[in-house]
Each structure stands twice: as structure tokens, then as C-alpha cells.
Simulated scan of single mutants.
Amino acid sequence: MSQKVRAVIARRKNEPVTVETVVVPDPGPGEAVVKVQACGVCHTDLHYRQGGISDDFPFMLGHEAAGVVESVGEGVSEVEPGDFVILNWRAVCGQCRACRRGRPWYCFATHNAARKMTLEDGTELTAALGIGAFADKTLVHAGQCTKVDPAASPAVAGLLGCGVMAGLGAALNTGNVQRGDSVAVIGCGGVGGAAVMGANLAGASRIIAVDIDDRKLATARKLGATHTVDSRENDPVEAVRELTGGFGADVVVDAVGVPETYRQAFYARDLAGTVVLVGVPTPEMRLELPLLDVFGRGGALKSSWYGDCLPSRDFPMLIDLYLQGRLDLDAFVSETIALDGVEESFDRMVAGDVLRSVVVL
């Protein structure tokens, strides 16, 4: 039997979000209804509201979430009612060419729930990243539910559902940072801060945080940065080279995703070093680089989708590290807010006043 719950809705482009009543259907085959306990406010939610991802309004926002499985549909074996789960937006299919090649983190046919949640008048909603978790409950594909240790705080666990995982994975998975490497991270918001933490976890010897905001640079130091560069006052390429013996960093993570910062990352890396793009560009952006430099500098230019994570592998492991006191995920929770505080939290996020606001239900 369907249920009526509260949810945050973006009805039209650039208009403030509203809290409205949403109808959540019973789970169909392969689906699950999850009672949401906490959901982080991510830049991607703002991009949805701004129409920067698609024009499939109205959107049901929220995707960085943790909660408890309430019910499951036919054929679900991965989770059962009562399981504490983190929601993910790349539920792998197991059948596509990437999955068959043993690279499921590149899955080309990820799953979402087939049934639609709706407004009370029957208007179908587009769930942000197939999740829609600024809500009391949401309907997802069961593969989007990753069971983890329930001892973890939902407000912290949910952050692995998107931004923090993207940053950690950019360093650990895509960048493959090794012990003793030098790493530079350009842009130290939530994703970049997590990349700093990931580099520190991997044992990097020198971690250089680059940003234009003194507050973010101070936070980056707390997350493991050994050096900081204020790129308002210093050329970041020259600064990174100076801090790495004139060579450049082994791995440079661009957590901003604009042409200027990508060029900085490209030239701030050592010969045969790695550039990781994890910041998300907008469709109109274009990049121009001398092809001879691309050839002559060697190395690897990589894009990081969701930190190239495999939720079933990475989420439980990272939660275990958190519970052991080896991964300070609490550092990312700047504030907790109610469901009706999402619109105001967007302003604080844009202003750089928070790493993450987290809706607690």
C-alpha cells in the first residue's frame, strides 16, 4: 500500500524548493522502501534546482543519505527490512561489458527504481540521482542500498553516498595514491577536503591543499594537508612545484572542475604524474591544451566518477575505519538542519560557510 510522506521538491528552474506531500508506492520487484534518517546537502542538489542537470522538473531532491530498509519487493536478497544502509546512485547491473570485464565501478547500466514517486495530484517526480532522499521515506532499487554497521551515525554515514566518497575515491581509487607520494588538491570544499583525507589515509608524504578561501585551507590542514596555497595570492602551479623540489606533484586532484583549475592541475603534476578530475564541469565548458604538452608530459589524465567506488566494497570498509577512529568523517558535518532548512542551506554552501549541512529526520 502506498504511503504519503514529506519531501523537498524543486518544481521549476531556479525557484526556491518547497516541502510537499509525496506518494511513495510499495516496492516492486528488485526495489526497496527506505526510511531516511539523514541526508547531506550536496552541490548536485543545487544543480538540479538550477536546471543544470536536466529539465525533468519537478525534482525530488536529496541523495547523500543513510537510513533503515522498511520493506522490499519480490526477488530482493541483498538487504532485508531493518538493515541500516547507505544509499548509492550507481547500483551496478553485473551484466554490462564493464561488469563482465571485472570493472563494475564503470558500470554502464546502473539501476534505479522502475516505479515513480509522485505528488498527490499524480505528477511524476524525478528523483535526484535516482534517490530523492530529502524525504521521510524514499523508493530505490535494492542495489542502491549498501548495508553497513549500524553503530555509525546516520548523519556521517550518509555522506559516503556522494561527496565524501567522491573525494576519498578520487585519491584512493582513481589517483591510486601510494605511500610517500606527493599530492596536490585544487579546491578544498567537501569533495576536495575528502581527497585530502584520502591522500593522508594512503600515506602520502606531502599533501598540498589549494584554495582561495582561508577557512577551507584551515579545514584542509585538519583533514591532513601538510601545506596550503592561497591561489588568490600565489600561482598554484609554481607553488606546488616549489613545494615538490621543482618537479610537481605525483597526483593532482582537480575538485573544482573548470578549465582554469584543470590547466593548473595539468601543469602542477610531475612528469608521468596523474591528474584526476573529480569536480563536475558544466556542458558549455571547453578546454584547450597544447597537444605536444599532453604527449610530452606523459602520465595519466583521469576522470573520477563517484570516486570510482564500488559501494558494496568501499562503504563497509570506510565505515569500519570511521568506527575504529582512523577516518574522521565527523569533520565534514558542519551543521544539522530540519527538512524545511534545505533552501537556506544552499546559500551557506555557496558562500563556503559549511562543508556539509545534513538534514536529520
Rank of each mutant, 00 (worst) to 15 (best):
D136E: 15
V185Y: 07
M285V: 08
L243A: 06
L323G: 08
G245F: 14
Y306G: 14
C96E: 07
R179Y: 01
F59L: 01
S2Y: 01
E80L: 01
P16L: 05
R90N: 06
I86K: 01
A166V: 11
D211L: 08
G198I: 12
G175M: 02
L87N: 05
A249T: 12
F266K: 10
A300D: 13
F134G: 02
G30A: 00
D340G: 13
D230K: 09
V358G: 15
M1S: 03
N14A: 10
D149C: 05
E31A: 00
F108T: 08
P150K: 11
P281I: 13
G245A: 11
D293I: 05
P104Y: 03
M197V: 06
V79I: 09
K216I: 02
L361W: 15
A109W: 03
I86H: 04
V333Q: 13
A184L: 04
R90H: 12
S205V: 02
G192H: 07
F247N: 11
E288G: 14
G163I: 01
K4A: 01
E284L: 10
G158I: 12
G307C: 12
G203L: 06
V22S: 00
H141Q: 04
V177N: 06
S153H: 05
S345N: 14
A199G: 02
L289W: 13
I86E: 00
M165K: 00
P290N: 09
V68K: 07
G30R: 02
E78F: 00
P290R: 12
A133C: 10
A239D: 13
P25M: 03
L277R: 15
P236Q: 04
G102W: 07
Q37W: 00
A220C: 09
L301C: 08
R11F: 06
R90V: 13
T228P: 03
L87W: 02
A155P: 00
Y267V: 12
A152Q: 05
W105R: 04
T174N: 03
E238N: 11
R103M: 09
W105G: 00
A7Q: 00
G163M: 08
Q3T: 10
G190F: 08
G299E: 03
L172T: 06
V333C: 15
P154Y: 13
V68S: 11
G51C: 07
A209P: 09
S77E: 10
G187P: 06
D83E: 05
C42A: 08
T146R: 07
D340F: 15
R263M: 11
Q144K: 09
V333E: 13
M285T: 07
P81G: 03
V240Q: 08
V360M: 15
V69S: 07
D56I: 05
R297T: 14
D213T: 09
N200F: 12
D314L: 13
C39L: 01
S2P: 05
A65R: 09
L271Q: 14
Q178P: 00
N200D: 10
F59D: 01
G190Y: 06
S71N: 01
Y262C: 11
P311F: 14
G62P: 05
V278Y: 15
L160E: 05
A255P: 13
F295H: 10
D250W: 06
A155M: 08
